[in-house]
Simulated scan of single mutants.
Amino acid sequence: MKLTDIYWHLRSDIAKIEKELEVTIDAKHPILKKASSHLLKAGGKRIRPVFVLLAAKFGEYDIEKIKQVAVPLELIHMASLVHDDVIDDADLRRGKKTIKSKWDNRVAMYTGDFIFARAIEMATNCDKPEVHQILSDAMVEMCIGEVEQIRDQYNWNQNFRIYLRRIKRKTALLIAVSCRLGALAAGAPRNVQLSLYRYGYNVGMAFQITDDILDFIATEKELGKPAGSDLQQGNVTLPALYSMKQNQELSAYILTMINSENSEKVVMSEIIEMIKESGGVDYSFEISDRYLNKAFKELEKLPDIPAKDSFYQIAKYIGTRKY
């Protein structure tokens, strides 16, 4: 089964979630309404709702109950992207103008806050108290991750542990929670919930590492933003981090170029090529594969139902995706 087949089988429920997202972000204030709608129309893989839906297949599947978890999780993700774009001073996301670029930083921050609030509001419809605790704990961790990303911006001496902890909070945690809450909302056994959580965590780590790799090897058209933009914004990801540890000459060159007054004019192609030659991309793929193998092992513990194979295919896709 291919990824497109998974989406096809879930298309009816994904459509319901998409409609619910539209309704939930509707705002009386015209600017909030336009900004939120602009973000929603920019699209996205909706991978977190898909994780929720598949995880719910391990319990009593009821889309009306499951969407009370799936929609808030996607809204939390969307809101975090709006704030990310302000922090990163990003003008483009998925090839379209960001809210902060189309309006300004203040509108972007308030739009992100508004979407967060809508997420919490909808989550109150879920009658399982544990859902709220898990969701709030995840949001706290995500906020810490955002602050740490700001702190570590242009920190060229950070170690691998700092990077891995940051991407856990930035990406892996919400995917892990999506898997667990889908199972929890459907009343799946606790051991299944925890296996799905660990699966989601490992897939989430691999997902973000692959994202960071693509920033160096994908085209601007595929990325929807210039290649190497993370590094230019001072966000040190695994390919660059490994290469700079291995190659002091490269490290010195990057520091000189990124910190120069003409940093906006830096031709990233040369730096990207040096990172590839220093083994940063290959090493990062290796680490991503390690996380994926851990995810596959968690799947072995789960009951043999079609959703299990779907989870396997999603993990496989993450390891080979090009954008």
Results as ranks from 00 to 15, higher is better:
I144M: 11
Y163F: 03
S178P: 00
I150L: 11
S178N: 02
V140T: 13
W156S: 02
R180E: 13
M139R: 10
Q149M: 10
F160E: 14
L181S: 09
E148I: 04
E148T: 04
R180I: 01
A138N: 07
V147L: 11
L173K: 11
E141D: 15
A138I: 09
S136F: 08
A176S: 04
V147D: 05
R151K: 09
A172R: 01
R180N: 10
A138T: 13
E141I: 13
M139I: 15
L135D: 11
R169M: 14
K170G: 01
N157K: 14
L173E: 06
N157D: 15
G145P: 06
E141Q: 15
M139C: 13
R165C: 01
I167W: 02
C179P: 04
Y163S: 02
E141P: 06
I167C: 01
I144P: 05
Q158N: 05
R166G: 04
Q153T: 15
Y154C: 00
R151M: 09
I150E: 11
L164R: 09
L135H: 06
R169E: 09
W156H: 04
N157Q: 14
R180P: 02
Q153H: 08
I144W: 12
V140R: 15
N155L: 10
W156V: 04
L164W: 04
Y163Q: 04
S178A: 13
I175P: 04
S178V: 00
Q153C: 14
L135N: 09
V177A: 15
I167K: 01
A138D: 02
I150N: 05
W156Y: 13
I144N: 04
R166N: 13
T171W: 00
C143P: 05
N159R: 06
M142N: 08
L181Y: 07
Y163L: 01
L173I: 06
Q149T: 10
C179S: 12
Q153G: 10
V177W: 10
S136E: 09
S136M: 14
R169G: 13
D137T: 13
K170Q: 05
S136Q: 08
S178M: 04
G145H: 07
V177N: 14
D152S: 06
L181V: 07
N157A: 07
A176I: 00
I162T: 13
T171I: 01
Q153L: 02
Q149P: 12
Q149C: 06
I175K: 08
K168P: 03
R165H: 06
R161S: 13
V140F: 15
Y154N: 03
C179A: 04
K168N: 11
Y154T: 00
R166Q: 11
N155G: 06
